[in-house]
């Protein structure tokens, strides 16, 4: 990495959480990484790979972390940086106070160092059946028409990259509890807005009513604050809360029982 001095700055000071497994004690290791203009947290971690030596001059192992696209669309590189959850790739060192402290997400089982297991988020997508029930992959012509206004809303919802910022910031989500968090709730809204998806809206709402569903939201509104894609997560939660309530009423009034529907006849 080309070293330039900006305001006399030659190195960037990092404090990085190291923990080989949950059975091992964790600790911080400090690093002095050569400063480069435009550097971000990942480019510095890569520099440590090329020279895995701590600030005290001790040889260590390269830091383990998750990353992939490095342009904030894959959702891999979520970590706590200086105590705030964010994407490491888009965290430019020029915008961060030193020492830059890197810690793994706290709401997920640790894999090693900064890498965690976020499979609970993918399980939540199963719980809310976050997909459309297409008939098959054969050519059936175009889907239903959609307005530009609906597309604009759905597009933003569809940019959720399952990064886990919203879960990490949520006081209701805890390591080991079941709350699905804002991401999956917002995905349920996305598919329930889709003209074909509407046909199975109740399936998704049922998923939202199960264990760990939308009722566990404590309305802290942290999720929307930390979403790197600025997805209106609290709007999604409010919308789904309303729909779940409506479904509950319909069920209480037995209007939604299959027998009631059959008795009512077509139309």
């Amino acid at each position: 990495m080309e070293t330039r001095t900006a305001g006399g700055r030659t190195h960037v000071h990092f404090k990085i959480w190291r923990q080989e497994t949950t059975d091992h004690e964790g600790r911080f290791e400090e690093f002095k990484v050569p400063y480069a203009k435009g550097a971000n947290v990942i480019s510095c971690l890569m520099e440590i790979q090329r020279n895995p030596v701590t600030a005290e001059g001790k040889r260590t192992t390269p830091v383990v972390w998750d990353s992939n696209c490095l342009e904030e669309v894959c959702g891999s590189c979520t970590v706590n940086i200086n105590g705030r959850v964010r994407m490491a790739c888009s965290s430019l060192v020029d915008h961060l106070a030193e020492p830059i402290v890197l810690e793994p997400l706290q709401k997920f089982p640790l894999v090693r160092d900064l890498a965690v297991d976020r499979s609970r988020m993918f399980d939540a997508l199963k719980q809310v059946t976050a997909w459309l029930n297409i008939d098959g992959t054969h050519d059936l012509g175009p889907g239903p028409r959609q307005s530009q206004g609906d597309q604009a809303v759905m597009y933003v919802l569809s940019t959720c990259m399952t990064c886990a910022c919203c879960l990490e910031a949520c006081p209701q989500v805890q390591l080991g509890n079941a709350f699905m968090g804002a991401a999956a709730i917002s995905q349920a809204r996305l598919f329930n807005m889709n003209p074909s998806g509407k046909m199975n809206a109740d399936d998704r709402l049922s998923g939202l009513m199960e264990r760990g569903g939308v009722q566990d939201c404590g309305k802290a509104q942290n999720c929307v604050e930390v979403c790197p894609k600025e997805i209106p997560l609290t709007t999604s939660i409010a919308a789904m809360n309303r729909e779940v309530t409506k479904l509950l009423f319909r069920r209480i009034l037995s209007l939604d029982l299959p027998s009631a529907r059959a008795a009512a006849g077509p139309g």
Binding site: L140, P142, S147, Q148, Q151, Y155, S158, G197
Partner: peptide
Amino acid sequence: YLLDRMGVTFNRTPEGL
């Protein structure tokens, strides 16, 4: 069209195409 049916949020024309 298949991707459209799978729910990809493609941009639309004023007519919704």
